[in-house]
Amino acid sequence: MVSTTSEIISQFVINQYKDGNYQTPLIIGINGPQGSGKTTTCEQVVTELSQKLAANVIALSIDDFLLTHNDQEKISRANPGNKLLEFRGLPGTHDIKLGSHILQSICNQLPIQIPHYDKSLHNGRGDRAPTSKWTLISSPIDIVLFEGWSLGFKHLSETCLKHIYESSLKYSSKSHLPSHKLEHLLTVNNFLKEYEREWYPYIDAFIHLDAKDINYAYEWRLQQEHTMRKRGLSGMSDAEVRDFVDRYMPAYELYVPALRDKCLFCSNDWDRDEDMGKLQREEHRMHKERSLRILLDRNRKVIDVFKNVL
């Protein structure tokens, strides 16, 4: 019998929790494309772990840390013509200080209010909800499931990004990169350094929900939007959803390969070749038990499960 995504994640988290090689709380990073079911899965895992471990388990999303609508418009105006920063979601459109403050408060076991981002506001463009809708988290917290579509993405060197970009111009008719200027991609790439520096050190273990075909994201995101509209909430049209997801595709193209091939916790300066040094290989082996990749089909069913090994 094939296990569900929530069952696999729950067992992985239980193993990490019982291992005890972390400072309380245990923070599990979870990456997955838009619509892959991260939020629903996390809700299921929170319920299951709370029962099995008698632990205080919470779910947290990088969406909670998105800039307000007004601040997002400021980012857009500061980067004219950069479609990647025109709307919410891409690296550079989150409140890094707010996220760091909340993560540190959780680690210090301080009561904290978690912001709520309402994606239905401004005709589906979204905005941070008023503080009356924020969630008060009581301490002590044992486990945090921290999820996000781009969580775990790590910046590429300028040389590497330029090489990928130039290759896409010459050899790939399906690439989304040529739809954007190189300097716009480099701007987003540089923003990723803030996430790596300020947020990633909090992550103790990491799970990558990987789609067999990243283009499933279009269908999955449409399903989410249709569900939201059925609930009577404002949302984007189908054409707007496609335009919205289009803006995410370059990031998937640039950063998902590294999530598949490397361990999140390894250094960011080694290449995928046979000349990888002995110490770098050992670094990968030392951390592989802290990483998991779950491959999903079009219906979000589990195809395979991988531990990150060389």
Results as ranks from 00 to 15, higher is better:
residue 83 K to Y: 09
residue 244 F to Q: 02
residue 242 R to L: 14
residue 81 G to H: 08
residue 129 A to P: 02
residue 284 H to G: 03
residue 272 R to C: 09
residue 30 I to M: 15
residue 131 T to P: 01
residue 240 E to L: 06
residue 289 E to A: 14
residue 218 Y to S: 03
residue 296 L to A: 04
residue 201 P to Y: 13
residue 93 T to Y: 10
residue 296 L to T: 03
residue 170 K to L: 12
residue 270 W to L: 13
residue 200 Y to P: 02
residue 27 I to M: 12
residue 72 Q to K: 13
residue 96 I to N: 12
residue 119 K to H: 08
residue 174 K to C: 09
residue 1 M to P: 05
residue 186 L to S: 01
residue 237 S to T: 12
residue 175 S to M: 10
residue 232 G to V: 09
residue 148 G to E: 05
residue 188 V to P: 00
residue 152 G to Q: 03
residue 139 S to V: 14
residue 180 H to R: 08
residue 232 G to E: 10
residue 225 E to H: 04
residue 67 L to T: 04
residue 237 S to V: 00
residue 25 P to T: 04
residue 284 H to Y: 12
residue 211 A to H: 01
residue 79 N to T: 02
residue 17 Y to P: 06
residue 77 R to F: 09
residue 63 D to L: 06
residue 156 L to T: 02
residue 73 E to Q: 14
residue 25 P to S: 04
residue 185 L to H: 05
residue 253 E to L: 09
residue 16 Q to I: 01
residue 110 L to E: 15
residue 108 N to L: 12
residue 289 E to S: 14
residue 46 V to E: 11
residue 130 P to R: 10
residue 54 A to I: 07
residue 17 Y to W: 13
residue 24 T to P: 08
residue 165 Y to S: 11
residue 271 D to K: 13
residue 308 N to I: 07
residue 11 Q to C: 05
residue 248 Y to M: 05
residue 169 L to T: 10
residue 120 S to C: 06
residue 296 L to S: 00
residue 91 P to K: 01
residue 303 I to E: 15
residue 116 H to Y: 11
residue 199 W to K: 10
residue 185 L to D: 04
residue 88 R to G: 00
residue 142 D to R: 04
residue 101 H to Q: 15
residue 211 A to P: 00
residue 270 W to D: 15
residue 251 A to T: 08
residue 134 W to K: 02
residue 220 W to K: 01
residue 129 A to M: 06
residue 182 L to E: 03
residue 269 D to H: 14
residue 258 A to Y: 08
residue 29 G to R: 00
residue 210 D to P: 04
residue 60 L to S: 03
residue 14 I to S: 06
residue 95 D to E: 11
residue 116 H to I: 10
residue 3 S to R: 11
residue 102 I to S: 02
residue 291 S to E: 15
residue 28 I to N: 02
residue 98 L to W: 11
residue 3 S to D: 12
residue 170 K to D: 13
residue 78 A to T: 04
residue 108 N to Q: 14
residue 105 S to P: 03
residue 240 E to W: 00
residue 224 Q to Y: 07
residue 286 M to N: 15
residue 216 Y to C: 03
residue 196 E to M: 15
residue 192 L to C: 05
residue 238 D to S: 11
residue 142 D to P: 02
residue 196 E to P: 05
residue 279 L to D: 15
residue 44 Q to E: 12
residue 65 F to L: 01
residue 84 L to R: 04
residue 49 L to E: 08
residue 254 L to M: 06
residue 100 S to H: 14
residue 163 H to G: 07
residue 9 I to R: 05
residue 47 T to V: 13
residue 284 H to D: 05
residue 37 G to Q: 10
residue 46 V to M: 09
residue 296 L to M: 00
residue 80 P to I: 07
residue 122 H to S: 07
residue 54 A to Y: 14
residue 20 G to Y: 12
residue 217 A to I: 00
residue 284 H to Q: 08
residue 108 N to M: 13
residue 276 M to A: 13
residue 272 R to P: 05
residue 244 F to V: 06
residue 271 D to F: 13
residue 93 T to I: 05
residue 180 H to P: 02
residue 34 Q to A: 15
residue 158 E to Y: 11
residue 142 D to L: 03
residue 257 P to I: 05
residue 196 E to D: 13
residue 2 V to N: 14
residue 54 A to T: 09
residue 190 N to K: 07
residue 204 D to I: 06
residue 163 H to K: 15
residue 13 V to S: 07
residue 136 L to I: 07
residue 242 R to G: 01
residue 228 M to V: 00
residue 117 Y to C: 08
residue 19 D to Q: 14
residue 165 Y to N: 05
residue 124 G to W: 00
residue 125 R to I: 03
residue 53 L to P: 01
